[in-house]
């Protein structure tokens, strides 16, 4: 199991790195799916099979499909990749990388200096426990989450309309 964990971890890291460095959105998206699948495997290894399934269905499935649809709708031309290479000069990477590295080191420091695991061998948490907690202790949060989704739908519908009332500002901006 430990081996599986490290394997999937490596896959996840690599795939994510490929997402960040890829030149074409569709390629990036495919790497992202790989990354999500790897993380889902990690979940499974960590004893959260229900979450692993949700990761696959919602992240790798639904959300990625949304991205794909959007890329298709935007119908980006062939010059996207060259534009990206132009954006991603090596010098651009230096500052952000350093910043992220410092943050990463700090986070590792937090993790390592934290107290050791209370239960060295954590047991698997089955979906039933999760469901009981979700509908029991967190039912109000579930309500809020549903409202958030509703708001998301309304906002997406409104923003996705072909022409908004103040579309005339387009000329003013350009």
């Amino acid at each position: 199991m430990t081996f599986a964990f490290y394997l999937f971890s490596c896959i996840a890291i690599l795939a994510t790195a490929m997402v960040v460095t890829s030149r074409h959105p569709v390629h990036g998206l495919l790497y992202l799916v790989v990354s999500f699948l790897a993380v889902a495997s990690v979940f499974y290894v960590l004893g959260a099979p229900f979450i692993a399934l949700l990761e696959v269905i919602v992240y790798a499935g639904a959300i990625m499909v949304l991205f794909v649809f959007m890329i298709m709708m935007l119908n980006l031309g062939p010059n996207v990749a060259s534009e990206e290479s132009q954006f991603l000069r090596p010098s651009v990477w230096v500052g952000p990388s350093l910043l992220c590295l410092v943050l990463f080191v700090e986070m590792i420091y937090v993790v390592v200096s934290g107290e050791p695991s209370a239960t060295a061998a954590a047991s698997e948490i089955d979906p039933k426990q999760v469901g009981v907690a979700l509908i029991g202790k967190y039912y109000l949060a579930v309500e809020f989450a549903s409202m958030l989704l509703l708001a998301g739908i309304v906002a997406a519908y409104h923003l996705g309309k072909r022409s908004l009332p103040d579309e005339t500002t387009e000329e003013a901006i350009q």
Partner: peptide
């Protein structure tokens, strides 16, 4: 976003 990151780095660093 970069400045938010700098801020987080500094706050985290200050805490650590």
């Amino acid at each position: 976003a970069a400045w938010v990151t700098v801020g987080s780095v500094m706050i985290l660093g200050a805490l650590l």
